[in-house]
């Protein structure tokens, strides 16, 4: 009967349509090469394109491959899910930049049990890793921002200072802010009046900054150690006619989206560290762990004999490899930092 035929046809077609992806995605030969998965805070942040670029340079030098994995919007749970999935893929090495230092720990331990080597870079976790590849000490990063802001406020710095950070829970930012406040407290005329949050979102950072200028009409300076929050802070100040030096700004972010506000005078103290080198050293360290050259104990070191950044990188007593110092971007040097 015709209805029976149609019935069979519909069932057949639907089944085929549902099974089509399975056929398209037939198993690929899995290479046994070294792979590093970098679990980043958010995939829309250009900063992590720079760390990836550094790791890719290292991969060209010593072989293997590297890829970024991050949620489109910063979330601890999304990162945990990503680490769990990578662990079950049996990726040899996982480098995590945690957006929440505690939440990632069980997932990192689980990945280790499943055979992966796990370390942290860019931001540290509260455990579950042999060592942390740090771009510059948190203390240095926070103080550097304070010194630049104080310098732009003149010889006798006076007035109210506010902070625009990423999330209230961002561990890096909180450490930098602590160092920043400590440095500011050395000047009697300066008071830190408020800390607001842009949640790694340009619109939210913009709105938070506009609200700050309304709440504190005599604000003298803003410290914005957040990316992509910093350019949004500058754009907000310019839109309320407090840019171009009316309110002094220092902060860190990537040059590609921030440099124009440095060039037009809104951001006086624009700085960062070298994220390309951070990714580069992270890759070497992960490879050394997987190859069994190091266990990850304090005092051990990796030596890069030839390549872009040769040198000896030591795991300090605090379980950190520090890859560099903060760098101030100026009209002269910013073009050298192509990220």
């Amino acid at each position: 009967m015709a209805s029976k035929a149609i019935r069979a046809l519909i069932i057949g077609a639907a089944t085929a349509a549902a099974l089509l992806p399975a056929w398209l995605l037939s198993p690929k030969a899995q290479a046994d090469d070294f792979q590093l998965a970098m679990v980043i805070k958010s995939s829309t942040n250009p900063y992590y394109k720079a760390t990836l670029a550094g790791a890719e340079i290292a991969a060209k030098e010593i072989g293997g491959s590297v890829k970024n994995y991050g949620p489109t919007e910063s979330s601890a749970q999304a990162q945990v899910d990503i680490i769990n999935n990578l662990a079950d893929r049996h990726i040899p090495a996982i480098a995590v930049a945690p957006s929440d230092p505690d939440a990632v720990v069980p997932a990192m331990k689980r990945a280790e049990r499943l055979g992966a080597k796990v370390l942290t870079f860019d931001a540290d976790s509260s455990g579950g890793r042999p060592f942390f590849v740090n771009q510059a000490t948190s203390d240095a990063i926070g103080r550097f921002g304070a010194v630049l802001l104080i310098k732009s406020l003149g010889p006798n710095p006076q007035g109210q200072v506010a902070i625009v950070s990423a999330q209230p829970t961002a561990a890096n930012q909180n450490l930098w802010i602590a160092a920043f406040k400590d440095e500011i407290s050395k000047y009697k005329g300066l008071t830190v009046v408020d800390t607001v949050y842009g949640y790694d979102n340009e619109q939210k950072a913009f709105d938070a900054t506009v609200a700050l200028t309304t709440k504190y009409p005599h604000l003298a300076g803003i410290f914005a150690p957040t990316c992509p929050g910093l350019p949004a802070v500058a754009r907000a100040l310019e839109s309320v006619n407090k840019g171009h030096g009316a309110i002094k700004v220092s902060g860190n972010c990537v040059p590609s989206i921030t440099a124009k506000y440095m060039l037009d005078g809104t951001i006086d103290g624009f700085y960062l560290w070298n994220p390309i080198k951070l990714g580069y050293v992270t890759y070497y360290a992960a490879k050394a762990l997987v190859d069994g050259k190091i266990q990850g104990k304090p005092g051990e070191s990796i030596t890069i004999t030839q390549g872009k950044w040769p040198g000896k990188y030591v795991i300090g007593a605090n379980g950190q490899i520090v890859t560099g110092e903060p760098v101030q971007f100026t009209a002269e040097n910013y073009k050298d930092f192509n990220f």
């Binding site: 099974l19 399975a22 499943l114």
Partner: peptide, 30 residues
């Protein structure tokens, strides 16, 4: 249910680790 079956078949095709108890448990837990 048909789509679910297709997904499970797809899963075993894309990775030999899909049908491990470690992977299934974490997919459920998450």
């Amino acid at each position: 249910l048909l789509v679910l079956c297709a997904t499970l078949i797809l899963g075993t095709h894309v990775s030999r680790y899909f049908a491990t108890s470690s992977n299934i448990s974490i997919a459920l837990a998450s």
